[in-house]
């Protein structure tokens, strides 16, 4: 049977107008020739409603476009800076939770993603993937989706990063980042097997030790209380979804680059945290 919905009628020609009526937003009867007027009015309304408060930025992303829709920002951390940030990790590591042979630091892959939301599911987009590895010094690679269509390329990049089956290091990566990446892999018919890799999720040792002492075990709490690191002008990760949307919709780059900075800061903290809790046996508060 056919309902009225699929029978166009002149008095409410546009979808938006009909929806408005059903939802009781616009209760004025429509005049037959109001099509274009309605559309413009609606667009104006949307524009005012959705005007972002994020600063615009100059519209350009640094780095290199390595595939359509995928930008790579790569940088090496200077030795001096690394020392200042306490990223001086020993050449091999054997944390108390790792039961096998000592792991050379080249084998470690620190990673952190920024996503379009927190609810999970197939519609969750990983728009930024930060990977930090020791390659004669710390090398940071940040992959940023400049368009959702770059997702396939992002998956390929991820598969390449983990092709040597590194030891993963993350903060809550087991429950969040790895499943999010696994979803992407599935959507693109790939499988990295990363869920099966050795994975040092530092949330767990931190939580075991401090659950009852700290107000919460978020990364920034650990930074403050364990590393005495205080972030300045950090854009919180919760702003990430909006930063990416505003970039896609309006071309605003400022907030997105702030998120990249936040992502880098998270990764650096991972190293410092591992240095603190993973290098000398049973560990205690500094």
């Amino acid at each position: 049977m056919h309902g009225i919905a699929d029978q166009p009628n002149p008095s409410s020609a546009t979808l938006a107008h009909r929806l408005g009526l059903l939802r009781g937003r616009d209760v004025r009867p429509a005049s037959p020739d109001s099509d274009i007027a309605q559309r413009i009015a609606r667009l104006k309304l949307l524009a005012t409603e959705a005007r972002p408060s994020t600063p615009r930025g100059d519209g350009r992303l640094p780095g290199e476009t390595i595939a359509p829709g995928l930008v790579l920002i790569e940088r090496k951390l200077g030795a001096l800076q690394a020392l200042k940030l306490r990223l001086d990790l020993p050449e091999t590591l054997l944390p108390d939770w790792h039961e096998h042979n000592p792991v050379p630091r080249e084998r470690l892959l620190f990673f952190d993603t920024e996503t379009s939301g927190l609810n999970g599911g197939a519609g969750l987009k990983v728009f930024m993937l930060g990977v930090l590895r020791w390659r004669d010094g710390w090398t940071l690679k940040q992959y940023i989706l400049s368009d959702p269509d770059g997702e396939g390329a992002l998956v390929e990049a991820w598969l390449a990063e983990v092709s040597d089956q590194p030891v993963l290091v993350s903060y809550n990566g087991k429950r969040f980042d790895i499943p999010a990446l696994a979803t992407l892999e599935r959507l693109h018919g790939e499988s990295s097997g990363a869920a099966e890799f050795a994975h040092w999720d530092l949330l767990y040792p931190v939580r075991r030790r401090f659950r009852k002492v700290w107000p919460n075990c978020r990364l920034q709490t650990a930074e403050r209380l364990l590393l005495n690191k205080h972030r300045v002008d950090d854009m919180p990760g919760s702003e990430a979804p909006r930063a990416w949307r505003d970039f896609l919709r309006f071309g605003h780059t400022h907030a997105l680059l702030e998120i990249a900075r936040h992502n880098r800061s998270d990764l650096e903290s991972l190293i410092a945290l591992l240095r603190q809790i993973g290098t000398h046996g049973p560990w205690t508060l500094p």
Binding site: P148, L248, R249
Partner: peptide, 17 residues
């Protein structure tokens, strides 16, 4: 604002479920 169109594809970009 929940979908983003790129040429021939419409992607979900909202943070909701």
């Amino acid at each position: 604002g929940v979908l983003h169109r790129n040429g021939s594809r419409w992607h979900w970009i909202d943070d909701s479920y």
